[in-house]
Each structure stands twice: as structure tokens, then as C-alpha cells.
Design a protein around this nucleic acid. Structure first.
Length: 883
RNA sequence: GGGUGUUUAGCUCAGUUGGUUAGAGCAUCUCGUUUACACCGAGAGGGUCGGGGGUUCGAAUCCCUCAACACCCACCA
């Protein structure tokens, strides 16, 4: 016993245990088709920086799942990986370069990518190390990276296959442009926020008249690119304007008034300026009315030469001011009103997104979404919690095409070559050259143009959206498109666990691409956890500086404590408020397990074998076995529901209260070694998925010296022995515990020092027998010098009395008894009981209740009534005696 | 403009298919060095379950409605 430290010191233990797991290959999956396989892919962490609490909760939940499944006998593949995270990583590296006065343009593409790989290596090592520190029992031998060779091959294959099916196409359209990241983004990478703004009213005159139309806009600078004004065809105010030419102020270009149903009559003046190059709705209207599209805002957020000499080169916000001033000067600015509207921001850098017309690559989503929806309809995929299914299908129902090309360097370059026709943002040298303009999509660089034989082909400089490669993750990680053994063994995956914030970004794409390429749902269950927030419920962010570093928590309190603090009290899909005090609370619990075990191992001595089926000798023995098996039963059920918080909470309750507070204390005099060993072993097995380090370390004490050591991680998860669940035993024990509590309560109320042992007399009625059997335990825990248990007897005079559960408990100590205090105490008890009596009596007086409620409910109410009536009667008698 | 979630003790949250006087942890107060643990133990106080209405013998739990907060989606310029 002296070998076990008095308090649990996590850091050394964790290092030691971690090493053991690696040695024994705990996370390694076998991968034989005949074995029962369980597959789960770790959401690949971005190689941008360090692990945060979001990763910590992901790893904790997934490790709980993985360890639990492993212990139930599954061949678990939990495959770890990292994500190249295109924009995010490129941004950090560029930022770092900028600090040294460098830019990616100075370095050139190749050199720059080298730098990013350097960064990747460094942060990959750091993140892997941190994943280890979280206790993650994943299969490192199968680790994958979204940009490694195998995954890149999968990406190319996927791209080509979709292109051949005409599900990938190239088109010029209005896209979301981030002027800071200098790339287009998909629609879901744009975050809309309601912002204060202005509505500007600008007057456009009809050519050669003094009649005019006033238009309202939130973005006056775009008027330089207007090519029409639209009104609703039914709008009486503007009937005779339709078809007329207006003079666009400043530019002095003629634009037509058109009629279109999409114009909202009630908004603004009912007349809309149409700028097809810079607004989605305008683009749609422009297309239908064959309007010209004039680009006035360039890719860097500056005005183009189309905006006119006065504005060219101006950044957007300046251009807005200048246009307003100009319009005001020439008298065309009617008024400015306050107007809140939703503004799109880059999800990576928060810059305001500009709609920009540009040639990009898209995935046609409708056919893919249909396949995914079919999977949902056929119930081939289950969401936990279920409500996310609705969100999932709704998004798929309204799906829009996915812009997948990015003007970045870090990522999978498109497997596309042009016969000297190059995309618009390529540099000038190649732009000048001309060819037959053929687009070649090919797995390997083509030697010459298949149409004209030209040798001078140029690869599209763009890369694919990071999420395109993540979308292939469930099968690309297993070697797809090759038909590998792993793919056959582990596909489809069993569970996909991640945060609900990437339901569309990631989960939906995996389901669609999985259905497309493998013909089935990539996983059976989608478990979505909530977001970790700070104690005020705010999102953790760098700008608020409210982030908590999980590694720091591990160093301070231990990994097990951190893991519990992320799971206990949390439910699927709901956000979790996190605070350091939660971790300290769980650290205390982990220490409790440690010390309870220390006590048990002290009692057991060395070379302990865990008994197969220990015999219960006493009521407490039978009770703890009943409670234990009830717990096992409940935890198994809760695991089925993915209610990990519930499982952890129940195990915690059992260990702390049933086992430590009661069972260990009750049996200290005469410990039953076999029951102790068995119960502790079951506890360690049950708790292991949640607190793997401390339990694995403690498990070492169960190893008989001669035998080869076995790991707890490879043990079987407990199954309930239903025959040991015994409600009668639990009820009896409940009475013993109630007696002890009642005595303790009276002692505290009467200020009897704990050191002072007292005498208690119990009139126990029908409970006499088994209370007598537990007399020594009651004496010990209630600190009694003697305990007299009788069926009934004369009311004990000069005693403090307590009536509970049909029992009379007397404390015959004249010194203790202050009649005044005792009367007061009894009276308050009486009052409470009378209130309770009234409640039940009223219920039973109601004929509807006695007639309609089930018999067992009515009976139990009657029993309660009898019991409380008895108690009241006894208290009243007592009060009479006291006078 | 649609949709979802949350609202239970000072704080963080549990509350299965409606059925004891609504629970736990933290915090608070009182007592305690009973050799596993002060990262502990014992005891106590604290809630008209967001408001209103309905269904029912019976509602924190089911239905309607309102409110606050959070989030998601949407081309109102």
C-alpha cells in the first residue's frame, strides 16, 4: 500500500501509461473482414496551430466511443488524421512571412509551398503530440493527411469522375470574393451578419426630360456599373417609365427602365438600380433581360477602370464616400436613411465579401443531394440528436451548386490543363499566348493538346476547396479508389462524430460524395456534439482572449479530469459552458477513485486475482452487488443512446456515494475481500473509457506478480448479472442507511460532538430482524456506544425522538434533552408531515383519482398516507409526554 | 422572412414512455484530523420547474400561445 502515492499525480502516470498503450498497440485495428468491425474517422485537425477545447471534446467523446467499443469486443479502427486546411494554413504562413517582410508573390509558388510544408511538419508533430496527451487510442499506423499522396490520388480520381459525369463544370458567374484572401469562397463560407448601414436614395433622370425616378441602394458605389433600373410590372407609379431611357448620373450613360416581378414594390421607392456585375438578384434579372454586365469593383476590392477615371484604383469604402459626395454635389442624392441589412463576411478573415463575376469551377449538387436524401429517407443514416436530420435534409432540399476552385497555392491543384487558354487571374506572361482553348481534365499532365497537338499546355493554377478532400475522408483514408483490404473491412464507417457547426461543411459533403462514389452512406450514425463555450456562454476566440488551453488544463489537473469536465453534464448537440472550476471538481473525483482504490488494494494485499463470482455474505455485500449490476445495466443502456454524460454521471455517483461513502465505510470492520476486489475491478472497467489513465494505472495492482501483465484497455466491458439486482435488498439497505442518516441528523441538530458516543433505542416493528443484523455497522457509522433494537416497547422517556420510515428512534440521554428545543424540533417535523398528509389525503379523497389511476399508484398513495399518519400520531404522543 | 434549440436552487446542469414532498455538483452555513482521500467526511439552508392557457384523476414532462436568449437558413436592393 505504501507503494501507492497518497494523492493521484497525473503527469507521471500519464506519460507512463501512454507509453504502455503504445507498446501494447492498444489503438491498432486488426482489419479482418470476419471480425466485428467498428470504424470511426477522426475529424482531421487543421495543421494551422495548436489543439483547442473543440478538439479536446471531439477527442474525448471519440476516445470514449472507441475504448467502449473495443472493450465490448469490436475490432475498432479509429483513424487519426490532419487537414491541410487550404485558406487557413496559407493565411497563417503568409502572415508569418509578412513579419519577415516577405510575400508569397516574392517567393513564387514552389518556394512558398515548400514553406507551407515546413509549417505543416512542425504543427503536425505538435498536434499529434497533443492528441497523444488527450489519451486518444487511435490507430497511428493508419494516419492520413488530406494532402498526402494517397489522398491526393483520391481527390484527382473524384474530380475526374465527377467531371466525366458532367457533375463538375466551369462557368462564369457571380461568386463570393474575399478581397483579403484574394480567392472565391463557397456560399457556406460566407457568414451573414446584420449590420447598421444606410439606404441611399439616388435620382435618375429620363433622357432629355426633367422627369425622374428615385432608386434606393445600400451600395451606392455600384451605381457606376448600373445597366438598368427595374420596377415591378404592376407598379402604378412607374407604368409610363417602363421602356424609357434614363441617364445614369456621373457616368452619363443611358440605361433602360425594365419591368420585373422580382422587384419588391414595398421596399424603398419600388425602383431598383440593376448592377448585374455586383449583385446576385441583379445578375439574375440582368441575365433574363440580356443586360450588359459592367465590372466596376476589381478582385482586390478596388475600383476598376470601368468605374471611370475619377474613381479607378480607389478602395471600396473611399469610392463609396466619393460617389456620395459627387452625387450630392450634382444634386442627385435625394436622401440618406438608416437601414440595417445583412452583410456577408469571410468566415476565415472576416472581411466583407464582394460579389464578383468570375470564371470558376462548380459541382452540380442537385443529383448528389438527391442521393443523400434517399439515404436519409431509407433510414440508412441516423442522427444523434435526431433533430439534426431535419436541418440536414432542409439544407439538401435547397442545395446550390458548390464553387470548388480557390485562388490559392496550398492545396490540390486542379487536374485541369488549358491549351494556352488561361484563367483570368493568371499572370500576364501566359495570358498573352493563345491556343485552341481546349480544356483538358486528366489524371496525369497531358503531353500535348488532344485537339490541336499543341505542346504548350498550362495547368489551371487554382486549387480545390479544402472541403472537397475532406468530403472523401471516410473512404479516401481507407485507400479508395483502390479496393484495399482496409476499405473492404472498414467501409462504411460506423459512427461519424463531430461538432454540429460543420454539419453542412463536412457531414453533408461526405454523405453526398460517399453516396456518389461508393454507392452507400459513408457511415451509419452521425453523432454531433455541441460547441464549447466560456463560462459566460460566449464562443471562445482569440479576439476575446477567453480561450482555455486544454494542454494547460492537463498539466494542471490531469487529462482524466479534463475529459470528465467535457463530458459530465453534457448532452448530445447542446453547447457546453466550460470553466476551470469544473476541471478542479473532476480532479477531485479522479483523486477519489485513486484513494478508494488505494484503500481497497491496502486491504487486499499483494498478488491479487480478481474473483470470478464472489459470494455475498452480508446485506451490504448483496446491496453493493445489486447497486453495481443496476449501474452496469443502466450504463449499457445509456451507451446505446450515446448518452455519455449520463453514463459518466451514473458511474461517478456510484463510486462516490454507494461505494465510497457507504459500502467501504460499512465494511471497514469486516471487509469482504472478494467483493471488494470484484467491485473495484468492475468500477475500473466501467470508468476506463472516461478516465483511461488513472484506471489503467490502478489496474496494474490487479496483476499477480508471476503472470504476464494485462492491460485494462483490453478488458471486457462489464455486463450486468441481472440475478444480482435485488430491489428487496436495496429497500432493506435503504432503511439501514436512513437510520444512520437520521441519527447523524439528530446528532448535528442537538450538537452532540462526534467524539461523544451515545446510546440509541430503536423500536423497529417488522424491521427488527435485519436491523439487528446490521447493528454493528449502524453503531460504527452513527458513532453509538450501544444500540438497542426492539420490536416495540414502552415509549422511552427523557429522550430525543425521531420517527421515520415506521421506526421510532430514541436518544435516551437526559443531558441532551432540552424539552423546549425538543418540542420545537418535533413541532416543525409535525408541521411538515401535516402538509404532506394534506396533499395525499386530498389526492385520495378525489374519486376520479381512486377510480381512474392505476391500482399500484393508488396503493402506494394509501401506503404513504398510512405511514405519515402513523408518524403524526407518534409525534403528537411525544409532544403530550413532553407536556 | 422562415426554422431549430434553450429557459428547473446563487452558478453549471440531470430529470426515461405524464404518477413519491422536483434531484446532483459547485457555492453558502454548521460541525469534524473516525489512519483511503481536507483534491475529505457528516449535517443544514436554498426552487410556485420563463409567463399564460389547455388536455388529464394527475403536468417540469403532452398541446397551444407569449416572452427572453442563442444558433441556422434566406438574392428585400
Amino acid at each position: 500500500m505504501s507503494e501507492i502515492e497518497k494523492a493521484y499525480i497525473p503527469n507521471d502516470v500519464e506519460r507512463d501509461v501512454s507509453q504502455k498503450w503504445t507498446e501494447f498497440g492498444v489503438g491498432k485495428a486488426v482489419g479482418k473482414a470476419k471480425k466485428k468491425n467498428f470504424t470511426m474517422m477522426m475529424p482531421p485537425a487543421n495543421v494551422t496551430g495548436a489543439l483547442h477545447l473543440g478538439h479536446a471534446i471531439t477527442l474525448t467523446i471519440e476516445d470514449i466511443i472507441a475504448r467502449h467499443q473495443r472493450m465490448t469486443g469490436m475490432d475498432v479502427l479509429w483513424l487519426p488524421g490532419t487537414d491541410h486546411a487550404g485558406i487557413a494554413t496559407q493565411n497563417v504562413v503568409e502572415k508569418r512571412l509578412l513579419e519577415k517582410g516577405l510575400s508569397r508573390e516574392n517567393l513564387g509558388r514552389e518556394k512558398f509551398i515548400e514553406k507551407v510544408w515546413d509549417w505543416k511538419k512542425k504543427y503536425h508533430a505538435r498536434i499529434s503530440n497533443q492528441i497523444h496527451k488527450m489519451g486518444a487510442s487511435c490507430d497511428w499506423e493508419r494516419e492520413a493527411f488530406t494532402l498526402d499522396d494517397e489522398r491526393s490520388a483520391a481527390v484527382t480520381k473524384a474530380f475526374i469522375q465527377l467531371y466525366k459525369k458532367k457533375l463538375i463544370y466551369r462557368d462564369k458567374r457571380l461568386v463570393n470574393w474575399c478581397p483579403r484572401c484574394k480567392t472565391v469562397l463557397s456560399d457556406i463560407e460566407v457568414e451573414h451578419r446584420e449590420e447598421e448601414g444606410n439606404l441611399y436614395f439616388i435620382r435618375y433622370f429620363v433622357s432629355a426630360t426633367d422627369r425622374s425616378i428615385c432608386v434606393a441602394t445600400t451600395r451606392p458605389e455600384t451605381m457606376l456599373g448600373d445597366t438598368a433600373v427595374a420596377v415591378h410590372p404592376d407598379d402604378k407609379r412607374y407604368q409610363d417609365f417602363i421602356g424609357k431611357e434614363l441617364i445614369l448620373p456621373i457616368v452619363n450613360r443611358e440605361i433602360k427602365v425594365i419591368a420585373d416581378k422580382r422587384v419588391e414594390m414595398k421596399f424603398g421607392t419600388g425602383a431598383v438600380k440593376i448592377t448585374p456585375a455586383h449583385d446576385q438578384l441583379d445578375a439574375a434579372i440582368g441575365k433574363d433581360h440580356h443586360l450588359e454586365s459592367i465590372v466596376v469593383i476589381g478582385p482586390h476590392g478596388k475600383m476598376t477602370k470601368n468605374a471611370g477615371r475619377r474613381f479607378v484604383g480607389m478602395p471600396l469604402h473611399e469610392a463609396r464616400k466619393a460617389v456620395i459626395k459627387y452625387l450630392d454635389d450634382i444634386g442627385n442624392l435625394e436622401k440618406i436613411e438608416k437601414h440595417d441589412h445583412s452583410v456577408g463576411h469571410c468566415s476565415r478573415c472576416d472581411s466583407v465579401i464582394e460579389p464578383l463575376e468570375s470564371m470558376q469551377w462548380f459541382v452540380k449538387m442537385q443529383p448528389l443531394a438527391e442521393k443523400a436524401l434517399k439515404i436519409v429517407k431509407k433510414k440508412q443514416i441516423e442522427f444523434v440528436p435526431a433533430r439534426f436530420e431535419k436541418e440536414f435534409t432542409r439544407w439538401l432540399d435547397e442545395i446550390r451548386d458548390w464553387c470548388i476552385s480557390r485562388q490559392l497555392w496550398w492545396g490540390h491543384q486542379l487536374p485541369v490543363w488549358y491549351c494556352k487558354k488561361v484563367p483570368e487571374f493568371a499572370d500576364k506572361r501566359i495570358r498573352k499566348k493563345e491556343g485552341c482553348q481546349r480544356v483538358i481534365v486528366s489524371e496525369k499532365p497531358p503531353k500535348k493538346c488532344p485537339s490541336c497537338g499543341n505542346l504548350n499546355l498550362v495547368q489551371d493554377p487554382d486549387v480545390l476547396d479544402t472541403w472537397f478532400s475532406s468530403g472523401l475522408w471516410p473512404f479516401a483514408t481507407l485507400g479508395w479508389p483502390k479496393n484495399t483490404k482496409d476499405f473492404r473491412s472498414f467501409y462504411p464507417n460506423t459512427v461519424l462524430e463531430t461538432g454540429y457547426d460543420i454539419l453542412f461543411f463536412w457531414v453533408a459533403r461526405m454523405v453526398m460524395l460517399g453516396a456518389e462514389f461508393t454507392g452507400k452512406s459513408p457511415f451509419k450514425t452521425v453523432y454531433l456534439h455541441g460547441l464549447v463555450r466560456d463560462e459566460l456562454g460566449r464562443k471562445m476566440s482569440k479576439s476575446l482572449n477567453n480561450g482555455i488551453d486544454p494542454i494547460e488544463m492537463i498539466e494542471k489537473y490531469g487529462c482524466d479530469a479534463l475529459r470528465l469536465s467535457l463530458v459530465v453534464g453534457s448532452t448530445p448537440g447542446n453547447d457546453l459552458k466550460f470553466s476551470e472550476t469544473k476541471v478542479t471538481g473532476q480532479r477531485n473525483f479522479v483523486n477519489k477513485i485513486w484513494n478508494a482504490s488505494r484503500y481497497v488494494f491496502g486491504v487486499l494485499g499483494k498478488n491479487i486475482e480478481i474473483p470470478k463470482s464472489p459470494a455475498a455474505r452480508t446485506l451490504p455485500d448483496r446491496w453493493i452487488l445489486s447497486r453495481l449490476n443496476r449501474l452496469i445495466d443502466e450504463t449499457n443502456q445509456a451507451f446505446e443512446k450515446y448518452a455519455f454524460g449520463e453514463v459518466a454521471g451514473k458511474i461517478q455517483d456510484f463510486i462516490w456515494h454507494d461505494f465510497c461513502d457507504w459500502y467501504l465505510e460499512l465494511t471497514k470492520e469486516k471487509p469482504n475481500k472478494k467483493i471488494l476486489a470484484h467491485t473495484l475491478a468492475q468500477i475500473l472497467r466501467l470508468a476506463h473509457p472516461f478516465v483511461p489513465f488513472v484506471t489503467e494505472k490502478l489496474w496494474e495492482n490487479f496483476q499477480p506478480a508471476k503472470k504476464k501483465p494485462k492491460l485494462l484497455a483490453n478488458e471486457k466491458y462489464p455486463k450486468p448479472i441481472k440475478a444480482q439486482i435485488n430491489s428487496k435488498v436495496e429497500e432493506e439497505m435503504q432503511i439501514i442507511l436512513a437510520i444512520i442518516s437520521a441519527i447523524r441528523s439528530v446528532r448535528a441538530e442537538m450538537n452532540v460532538e462526534p467524539a461523544r458516543k451515545i446510546t440509541v433505542v430503536i423500536h423497529a416493528g417488522k424491521f427488527e430482524k435485519f436491523i439487528k443484523k446490521q447493528a454493528s455497522e449502524i453503531k460504527k457509522l452513527a458513532r453509538l456506544s450501544s444500540l438497542v433494537v426492539k420490536k416495540s416497547g414502552q415509549k422511552v422517556k427523557n429522550a430525543v425522538a425521531k420517527f421515520d420510515a415506521g421506526l421510532e428512534i430514541y436518544f435516551p440521554l437526559a443531558k441532551l434533552l432540552d424539552p423546549k428545543v425538543e418540542k420545537k424540533r418535533l413541532k416543525s417535523d409535525l408541521k411538515e408531515s401535516e402538509i404532506y398528509l394534506a396533499v395525499i389525503a386530498k389526492k385520495l379523497a378525489n374519486e376520479d383519482f381512486t377510480k381512474r389511476a392505476p391500482k399500484n399508484v393508488v396503493d402506494s398513495e394509501r401506503a404513504k398516507l398510512a405511514s405519515v399518519e402513523d408518524k403524526i400520531q407518534k409525534i403528537e404522543e411525544r409532544l403530550k409526554i413532553l407536556g
